[in-house]
Amino acid sequence: MVNTILSIPSDITGGTYFGWGSFQIQSGNLIVIIVMLVLFVLALVLPFPGNKRSK
């Protein structure tokens, strides 16, 4: 591999990252994961409407 050290200006949008050390999570992914957890919890605790019973 060529290991030329270059100072390349990155023109690709990088986004916002959160993390600790080598663990870095991108904000979009973080939101998706939070949404899944929230939906799961809400699905468990919210009462389900319309308890129409037949037979």
Binding site: F40, L42, A43
Partner: peptide, 13 residues
């Protein structure tokens, strides 16, 4: 219809 226990939001996913 569904059995009476089918009564949770988890079923809609």
């Amino acid at each position: 219809g569904q059995p009476s226990y089918v009564s949770s939001w988890i079923y809609v996913f």
